[in-house]
Simulated scan of single mutants.
Amino acid sequence: MNFNDSTYYMEHPFHDTPISMHPVEIRNNQCQKHAHSFYELSYVTSGQGTLSIDDSCIPITRGDLLFIPTDTRHVFQTTLNQSVTLMNCLVEKHILSGPQAIGDRMIYDDIDELTQPFRTLGNGFKVTENKKEFGKIMYSLHLELQCKESGYRYRLYLHLMDLLTRIRHAEPSDLQSAQGDLIDHIQLAVNYISSHYNESAILTRLCERFAISPRHFQRTFKQVTGLTLTQMIQNKRIQRSCELLSETDWSVQTIAREVGIQDMKYFYRIFKEKCGMTPKEFRQPQGS
């Protein structure tokens, strides 16, 4: 897997089991953005921070469980002088494909149905803990790997399937995906444009507000709204121009500046494109 930025591709040596547990403390943004070929389930045991995953940002706090797919760029971050402690469960890719040999085909089918969404997921997500169930399972996984008593690999697998089952059964309000967050951001962006359409650098301000790259934001904006950001801003500006042409006796130049357009040639061009007539023709009473 190749990335065009400074993403570090992490390797992890799985020794005698395809499931590995690692307590991690992150302080002062010490981690580098990275990706890996295994799945990662991270349980927040203390502190708060953010998970930056691809071009989205998810706030995290104690009790949250994060699922990170394979080959997905991500990094956990904290604010200055703050820390967040994680219990990381690393799972080799093949483990979610079900046991290699199993006598009961119906059991295999159940496991395949349970794990299928996790295998095909394109975005990471967060689950808010309910009744401390996730924490108990994560600590059970950790304890099994510490003690390694007879049959521990089988119990590790059962604990993992239990965890995935509880994630699948989580209430919709408890699930927060990176993509879902971004769609919410788009709605907030549309509201922002309605109030700030006459300002400059709208894209820059929105990307700073939501901590997302301009390219990813514009692509998702088009997918969600059916319009480019520029088209929506233009529509709002021309809509307001029409209102001012009808309600005031302001000059066309004054109206153009009021809606945030300084270039009069540009204003006349997009007004004609949107309305099919010039501002002067629009202002003339019908039949005159």
Results as ranks from 00 to 15, higher is better:
Leu188Met: 10
Phe217Ile: 06
Lys93Leu: 03
Glu243Pro: 00
Ser200Asp: 15
Glu149Leu: 11
Leu188Phe: 02
Asn81Phe: 07
Ile68Asp: 01
Thr228Asp: 05
Ile202Gln: 15
Tyr154Glu: 11
Ser288Thr: 05
Ala189Met: 11
Leu86Glu: 15
Cys242Gly: 04
Leu188Asn: 07
Leu145Asn: 10
Gly122Thr: 09
Asn29Cys: 10
Gly151Ile: 09
Glu208Gly: 03
Lys131Asn: 15
Ala256Thr: 02
Leu156Gln: 11
Gln82Ile: 00
Cys31Met: 15
Tyr197Phe: 15
Leu65Phe: 04
Lys280Ala: 12
Ser150Asp: 10
Asp112Trp: 01
Tyr197Trp: 10
Glu281Pro: 00
Met106Val: 07
Leu182Lys: 09
Ile238Ser: 06
Arg240Thr: 07
Leu41Ile: 12
Ser97Asn: 13
Thr7Glu: 07
Trp250Asn: 10
Ile19Lys: 01
Leu51Gly: 02
Ile183Ser: 04
Lys132Val: 00
Trp250Val: 00
Arg105Glu: 14
Tyr43Glu: 15
Phe267Thr: 04
Tyr39Lys: 12
Ile193Phe: 04
Asn235Ala: 08
Pro99Gly: 05
Arg73Val: 03
Arg73Thr: 02
His74Gly: 05
Pro279Ala: 08
Thr70Met: 14
Gln100Trp: 04
Gly103Pro: 00
Thr204Gly: 07
Tyr9Ile: 13
Phe38Asp: 12
Gln176Met: 11
Thr204Gln: 15
Glu281Cys: 01
Ser194Arg: 09
Val84Gln: 09
Gly287Asn: 14
Ser177Asp: 08
His36Arg: 04
Leu86Phe: 06
Tyr266Gln: 14
Phe271Met: 10
Ile107Lys: 10
Gly151Cys: 04
Ile111Val: 11
Glu25Thr: 13
Lys93Phe: 06
Glu281Gln: 13
Leu229Phe: 05
Gln218Asn: 01
Ala35Trp: 06
Phe271Ile: 08
Thr45Arg: 14
Asn29Arg: 13
Cys89Phe: 00
Leu245Asn: 06
Ser150Ile: 05
Gln253Ser: 15
Tyr43Met: 13
Arg240Ser: 03
Gly180Ser: 08
Tyr108Thr: 13
Val91Ile: 15
Asn29His: 01
Leu90Tyr: 14
Tyr157Thr: 08
Gln116Arg: 14
Gly47Phe: 08
Arg166Asp: 03
Phe217Asn: 05
Ser288Cys: 09
Lys272Met: 04
Lys33Ala: 11
Glu149Met: 04
Ile255Glu: 11
Cys242Asn: 06
Ile137Asn: 12
Met87Lys: 11
Arg205Val: 02
Arg62Ile: 03
Asp174Trp: 01
Asn130His: 09
Thr230Tyr: 07
Ile137Trp: 07
Asn130Phe: 05
Val252Leu: 12
Val24Tyr: 04
Asp55Asn: 10
His22Pro: 00
Tyr154Ser: 11
Phe271Leu: 12
Arg205Glu: 11
Leu175Asn: 03
Leu164Asp: 03
Val75Ser: 09
Lys131His: 08
Phe38Gln: 10
Thr225Ile: 08
Gln77Ser: 09
Thr7Ala: 07
Asn123Tyr: 12
Glu273Ile: 05
Ile270Ala: 02
Pro285Ala: 06
Ser6His: 05
Asp104Arg: 13
Asp181Phe: 03
Cys89Arg: 00
His169Leu: 15
Gln239His: 01
Thr50Asp: 06
Leu66Phe: 01
Leu175Ser: 02
Tyr9Lys: 10
Lys132Met: 08
